[in-house]
Design a binder for these strands. Structure first.
Length: 1011
RNA sequence: UGGCUCGUAGCUCAGUGGUAGAGCACUACCUUGACACGGUAGGGGUCGCUGGUUCGAUACCAGUCGAGCCAACCA
């Protein structure tokens, strides 16, 4: 492409110097200006869309579905990590020429979004959603979504995400709605959906049920509190006999209908079957039952049973046909109706009390009645809503469930857990076990949510059948039901439906009253049909993501080309929420698992390994790492987080200590590089800011290395590698060889999801091999008079930079694009290719691998290091040239070093360099010396050093070599070692020993010379 | 209670059946014409502990201690 295009708004023209004129790179890389420059250009060029021509021609596409972030959320470290990794994969494959689709989108996040909007509504208008009504409230949510929905997308773009935004989807857009309805109706027709009255996890703050996965368990200190029930005699009179129960939730005794004991527990055997006196509800029947579930050793061995508010009690209630007494309203207050229905007793005083308040009052009242029997502290798990943080109340309610057994069995097969070839691989592998465990213990999925924001369940109740169903239900039960009563009182339509849905048998409702339909029957015939009020769990629509986004249920080209996908990359924390659902639905509705690989990245934690959480005050905002921030801004921001009072002081102190200088700007590229470097498999990502600063420095190093090439690399046309091959010097051969190894390692590391290896390999190649060694050596050639050597260095510099930029591009797209564009000869080298982002992925040129060059260069750097060592230990200025004798152990080493004599002289700042063989060599009187197995280095130091100091250094070095030698000797003393160890290991040991011998010999001689 | 992961340099982490590496931090010297967000050299670890397998274990096995995560019906 030409570089004469006008710079995009917001950038300075000087930053847009055409590559053909004098480069104008500043001495420091500035992420902000570089990163502002490229994204829009990539978008305008349309390079993020898959190559449809290739795809249609049958080239295997590479497809990643982006995990859709919450529409009203903002960028957090988890997003930063997934963008980094997925973008890396997508960009690499795009460069490889695969038709690459990275499909982005956002999720409506039912509960989270509704909760936010409800909170706003309360804060600004002091209204609840019920004050507004469903339609008006939903308008508010949509408005909120429109206002805040783009923020996260903008942030993803700022991170460099090369997703195909032309295919962006929202889980509640029309296409996804169609898919959701279609999927639900199909499941319904296949008998995989049922309606049931179950004990569900109820969130009393958000007023909805939750799935098993949305509940977390926290260990808390509680008390095991005891009280007694008095037994009745056979005439129903109260006796003074009692049975003591232990409970952590005394308030639930308001719903007690039994006390259970173990059937073989002799203490209670005589009491089984007898009735008990409920202190507040004298007319309620409470019996002693025997059930093997009871643990005789725990508590008193007698358990109070509240079937409507405890999952175990519920099951026991089913086994013993106990009644269910719901004692709470939906916001977990004691239901006043309880007392009306069970008239004649006390207890009205509890009506309307919050459950925790009720606990106190129940305890106090039982105390007054003389029924308390002591207490003991206990550690127990409390179920907490992941959404609101409120303690879950197990509540009886009617919900739609999806049968999961069949899905789970398929899911086990797909990952190869039932033997056979896995259709989908889970990486890292150890997650497989967790997957199996989950699938083997799965319970049916509660898909109803008592929310308004979401996909309204496409179930319609036929009002014309209502009367018939209510009567049939009453007949079946042989009693007058609530619904029948309402009916005779003249209630009709939706009002009557509401009551009927509470009491009519689910089976009747499912077969006679309800039907699932993709068509909105209520809209079509509102007189006859009423749609179910509840919405579907968010994960229902997310589960369809891999194909709803491609147009399913329609038979679209996208669907044919891009399903199933290649890899699903996401956080391990949503393996079950999301990945499992997608696998279930993908297999069931599409016949194929939606992806061949599942890569689970670790959770980003703070530098101490704690989960990043705003409530803990340790959540780092990715934008602060990208743009940098001052300490005071950081403190200010943290103060706005919901941190408990007592913690805030400590948290702020910690930040002051941690980031006294604030956070330096690492840029999106810097953050990406850091996250990749830290994300090794099987470990959490502990984000360390000093490390991010270190990688930021690395990117600056790249910037300056390129600057060097542009400034000192010479001018004129750039020759190809092939045209230059014959004039390559040792250094050229060395770096080109190392480059091939780097290309190979990096390519492999990406394919194996070893992102830390990707970053570290490039890092050490570029900094250690290219900058520290090659660039330094190239200076001799570039400044020298040998035209061929100069031209070779130019070719090599630019070739290595060009390859390095392409190699690093998937990880640091902005920086590499910027620099790649500046490289001379780019247009000739890559005709028709406008961006690094679409330049070919580097491939290994085996012809450039040069073991000899690597070995020879190692000799050179070894010599240089030894010389510098002596010089520095002697306290000489690094710039002061010295006279050096290198006494080589054999002729090969002599020849090698002679061939790089000039380079070595410059590298080690040498005035006169003598490279000789040992024969006939006599060392000068006063010299500093050191040695390796290959040569001795003698630095002439007459009048320059303190012999005593030099002697000390030598003694230390001899010591070290001696210790190493002794270790080796010990191994060889063991006859088994020589006999059993592999030959190459033995040979290597022998060679090392010889080298150490040689080294020691030289060092001792040198020491002797010093006197 | 069960399962999983992790204990390696001051910190954050790689690593391999053959006697340990990186980055940051530290010490000394260097404002050298790519880069002080830099250069050169250096110091620093009995690889959590105890056994076992092996010629050889930081690595494999068992146990143990510690940290964390996940899943759980002991009220």
């Amino acid at each position: 492409m030409t570089t004469s295009a006008a710079p995009p708004p917001g950038t300075t023209p000087s930053a847009f110097a055409p590559a053909t004129t004098e480069p104008e790179l500043s001495t420091q890389w500035d992420a902000k200006t570089v990163e502002a420059r490229w994204y829009q250009r990539w978008l305008d060029a349309g390079i993020f869309a898959p190559d449809m021509v290739a795809a249609r021609a049958g080239k295997k596409p590479y497809v990643i579905m982006m995990p859709p972030p919450n529409v009203t959320g903002s960028l957090h470290m988890g997003h930063a990590l997934f963008v980094t990794l997925q973008d890396l994969l997508a960009r690499k494959h795009r460069m490889q020429g695969d038709p690459t689709l990275w499909l982005p989108g956002v999720d409506h996040a039912g509960i989270a979004t509704q909760a936010v909007v409800e909170r706003e509504l309360m804060r600004h208008e002091k209204k609840t959603r019920h004050d507004l009504g469903r339609a008006a409230f939903l308008d508010k949510v949509w408005a909120w979504k429109e206002k805040n929905g783009d923020r996260i997308v903008e942030q993803l773009k700022a991170m460099g995400a090369s997703a195909d935004w032309s295919r962006e989807r929202f889980t509640m857009d029309e296409q996804c709605n169609v898919a959701v309805n279609e999927a639900f109706v199909r499941l319904w027709q296949q008998g995989l959906v049922y309606r049931g009255e179950r004990l569900v996890h109820w969130d009393p703050a958000l007023l909805t049920s939750l799935s098993d996965e949305e509940v977390e368990h926290e260990e808390k200190d509680g008390e095991l509190w005891r009280f007694s029930y008095l037994l009745k005699d056979d005439k129903g009179e109260t006796t003074d006999q009692e049975i003591v129960v232990a409970t952590t939730r005394p308030e639930t005794m308001l719903g007690d209908v039994a006390v259970a004991v173990h059937p073989e527990d002799e203490r209670y055997l005589s009491m089984v079957g007898r009735e008990l006196v409920h202190p507040f509800f004298p007319r309620r029947r409470v019996v002693v039952i025997a059930d093997a579930y009871v643990d005789r050793a725990f508590g008193t061995g007698a358990v109070k049973i509240t079937p409507a508010h405890d999952p175990n009690d519920f099951e026991m209630g089913q086994r013993h046909s106990l009644p269910l007494i719901n004692i709470f309203t939906i916001d977990a207050r004691v239901n006043a109706a309880l007392f009306a229905a069970d008239a004649g007793g006390g207890g009205g005083e509890f009506a309307g009390l919050d459950r925790f308040e009720a606990r106190k009052r129940v305890k106090a009242r039982l105390e007054e009645l003389g029924l308390t029997r002591g207490t003991q502290p206990i550690k127990h798990n409390v179920s907490v809503s992941q959404r609101s943080g409120v303690v879950i109340e197990p509540m009886l309610s009617r919900q739609f469930f999806v049968k999961t057994k069949g899905f789970a069995d398929e899911a086990l097969k797909i990952t190869g857990s039932h033997g056979g070839v896995a259709e989908t691989r889970i990486i890292p592998e150890y997650w497989q076990k967790t997957w199996d465990h989950f699938m083997n213990n799965i319970r049916d999925w509660n898909v109803s949510r008592q929310l308004w924001w979401g996909h309204r369940i496409p179930v319609f109740y036929d009002l014309s059948k209502l009367d018939e169903v209510i009567e049939a239900d009453a007949n079946r039960k042989g009693t007058t039901t609530e619904a029948l009563k309402a009916q005779t009182e003249g209630l009709t339509g939706k009002k009557l439906l509401e009551i009927a849905l509470r009491c009519v048998d689910d089976e009747l409702v499912m077969t006679k009253l309800a039907l699932a339909s993709t068509e909105n029957l209520e809209a079509k015939d509102p007189g006859r049909y009423a749609q179910e009020e509840d919405v579907l769990d968010t994960w229902f629509s997310s589960g369809l993501w891999p194909f709803s986004t491609l147009g399913w249920p329609n038979d679209t080209e996208d669907l044919r080309l891009f399903y199933p996908g290649s890899v699903l990359e996401t956080g391990s924390d949503i393996l079950f929420f999301w990945v499992a659902r997608m696998v279930w639905f993908g297999k069931h509705l599409m016949g194929k698992s939606p992806f061949s690989d599942v890569f689970l990245h670790a959770i980003v934690r703070d530098a101490y390994g704690r989960k990043m959480s705003k409530g803990e005050g340790n959540a780092l905002d990715p934008l602060d790492v990208i743009n940098g921030t001052t300490l005071s801004d950081l403190l200010q921001k943290t103060k706005s987080y919901p941190i408990p009072e007592k913690k805030i002081e400590r948290v702020l102190k910690g930040l002051e200590k941690e980031y006294p200088e604030g956070i330096p700007a690492a840029g999106a590229d810097g953050l990406r590089f850091t996250l990749a470097a830290l994300s090794s498999q099987g470990r959490d990502v502990k984000l360390s800011i000093p490390r991010a600063a270190g990688y930021r420095n690395f990117l600056n190093k790249i910037w300056n290395a390129t600057r060097f090439a542009l400034m000192k690399g010479g001018t004129g046309p750039v020759k190809s590698i092939d045209a230059t091959r014959s004039s390559f010097q040792l250094a050229d051969r060395f770096i080109l060889s190392k480059l091939q190894r780097t290309i190979e390692t990096v390519s492999m590391a990406i394919d194996e999801y070893r992102f830390d290896a990707v970053a570290n390999t490039i890092y050490s190649f570029f900094w250690n091999d290219f900058c520290d060694v090659y660039i330094e050596l190239s200076k001799t050639a570039l400044e020298g008079s040998d035209e061929a050597a100069r031209s070779a260095a130019r070719t090599t510099l630019l070739h290595v930079l060009d390859s390095s930029m392409r190699l690093l591009h998937p990880l640091c797209p902005f920086l590499t694009e910027e620099l790649w564009q500046q490289l001379p000869g780019r247009a000739e080298r890559w005709p028709g290719i406008a961006f690094c982002a679409v330049a070919p992925w580097p491939v290994v040129d085996a012809g450039l691998i040069d073991v000899q060059a690597e070995r020879e260069l190692a000799l050179l750097t070894e010599a240089a290091t030894l010389i510098r060592n002596v010089r520095q230990e002697a306290g000489l200025s690094p710039r002061k040239p010295v006279d050096v004798d290198v006494v080589a152990v054999d002729a090969v080493v002599v020849a090698t070093l002679l061939s790089v004599r000039d380079v070595l002289s410059r590298f080690a700042v040498i005035e006169t360099l003598n490279i000789v063989s040992r024969a006939g060599y006599t060392a000068p009187k006063l010299s500093g010396a050191t040695a390796s197995g290959n040569f001795e280095v003698v630095v002439h130091l007459e009048g320059l050093i303190d012999p005593a100091k030099e002697k000390g250094r030598m003694v230390r070095e001899i010591d070290r070599a001696l210790r190493e030698l002794q270790g080796l000797q010990k191994r060889f003393e063991n006859p088994d070692f020589v006999a059993k160890a592999p030959v190459d290991v033995v040979a290597e040991g022998k060679a090392n020993m010889l080298a150490l011998d040689e080294k020691l010999l030289r060092l001792r001689a040198a020491l002797k010379r010093l006197g």
